[in-house]
Amino acid sequence: MKKKIYFLATALMLMLSAPSVMAKDAKSKPEMTENQKVRLAEITRRIEEIKSIDRSELNSSERKALRNELTEMKKEAKAMNGGIYLSVGAIIIVILLLILLL
């Protein structure tokens, strides 16, 4: 029983330290093309426009449309930067599978 606890503690420590190790390797990101840079500038400009809008004058459907537009732009900007993103739910599922299999 103690061996399982030590193994799980070691695995947990390794999983918690992995993101910090991966974060130091920021130079390996792919360079953005000119089209991507232009699109990123457009997204930034549109976000500034949305921030300057007085949202108290908008109705609920217009606010929802703005919110959806912002989430889509956020996803697009993240995709341009590259990388793998894991949600908290995915991490929990992986941990549970490791526990069940071992």
Rank of each mutant, 00 (worst) to 15 (best):
M13F: 15
E49M: 06
T33I: 09
N59D: 14
K27S: 12
T10V: 12
V94Q: 00
K74V: 06
A41R: 05
S28E: 12
L40M: 13
Y6N: 13
M32I: 07
I43V: 08
K27C: 03
F7T: 15
I93F: 10
L97A: 13
M15F: 12
K24L: 12
E76N: 03
A23Y: 05
E62Q: 10
A41G: 04
L97Y: 04
Y6W: 08
I92V: 06
K3L: 09
L16I: 07
E57F: 12
E57S: 10
V94Y: 05
L102R: 15
S56V: 03
S61V: 11
I5P: 06
S28M: 13
Y6K: 13
E49A: 05
I91G: 01
M32A: 10
I50T: 14
A9R: 11
L101Q: 08
M73L: 12
G82F: 01
E62A: 06
E76S: 04
I84N: 00
E42Y: 11
M22K: 12
A65K: 09
I50N: 12
P30H: 09
K29Q: 07
I95W: 04
L102N: 14
M15P: 01
E72K: 07
R63W: 01
I93Q: 08
V88G: 07
M80R: 03
K75A: 10
T10M: 10
A90D: 02
M32C: 06
R67P: 00
I53E: 14
K78S: 13
D25A: 14
I99E: 01
E42K: 09
L70P: 06
L16K: 01
K37F: 03
L97H: 03
S60K: 12
A26I: 05
I47K: 14
A65V: 06
K74S: 08
R45W: 13
E69T: 09
K29W: 00
K51I: 11
M80Y: 09
M73I: 03
A77G: 10
P30V: 08
Q36A: 03
E34T: 08
I93W: 08
F7N: 15
K29I: 04
P30M: 08
V88D: 09
K74I: 06
L96D: 03
I43K: 03
T71E: 15
K2R: 13
L14E: 04
I99D: 00
R67K: 02
V21I: 10
I50M: 15
S60A: 15
L96V: 14
T33Y: 07
L70S: 09
K27N: 14
K29V: 02
